[in-house]
Amino acid sequence: MKRPLAMIWAEGFLDRVAAERLAKELGLRIEGAVKDAGGIDRFWELLDKYNKAAEQCGLVFALADHDGVDCAGPKLAAKLRSRHRDLILRLSVAELESWLMADHESLGEYLRVSPSKFPEEPDKVKDPKRTLVDLAAKSSKPAIRAGMAPKAGHSTNRGPEYTLIMEQFVRQYWMPFRAAERSPSLKRAIVALRAASA
């Protein structure tokens, strides 16, 4: 019998959706709350609580972007030192988008962009979200271009339907195992989840 996940604690909306997808792919049942922090600050702020909860209720999968964590090195080290073994804390290298872009085939087809344009080593891309948005802006499908890329004159780094479009991708098309072949950090996350739930 695999151990189920008690809870998922994610940095943002899309991280949460991806964490759920990973659990599903690994055949892990989720028994309790699936929640996101709506931002990195709150994620770290409440991580201790989830750490304590893990001690009581079992596996907690916590997922955040690695972005900016380097400068928070000491803070992170302190958190990790006191980490309970049932808190599985994973950081996608740079951003979650590297994990998603690592599945060239599904994402290329979904966004209608030639897979050959995707980065071979997504974990090494400095600004994965920007890379993804720039790729989507070249889509042959107008709905993808309009939804993923910022409107002319708008000071955002993504389009107005980014959330919905990427959510659907993660839920229905993303193949984490295939993506893990190109993203070592995703592979490590899968290995850690497998080991903890064994």
Binding site: G39, P150, H154, T156, P160, Y162, T163
Partner: peptide
């Protein structure tokens, strides 16, 4: 609603 406003697809122009 913080939830509504937590979508980074909302531009400051909007």
């Amino acid at each position: 609603s913080e939830r509504v406003l937590a979508d980074a697809g909302i531009a400051p122009e909007e």
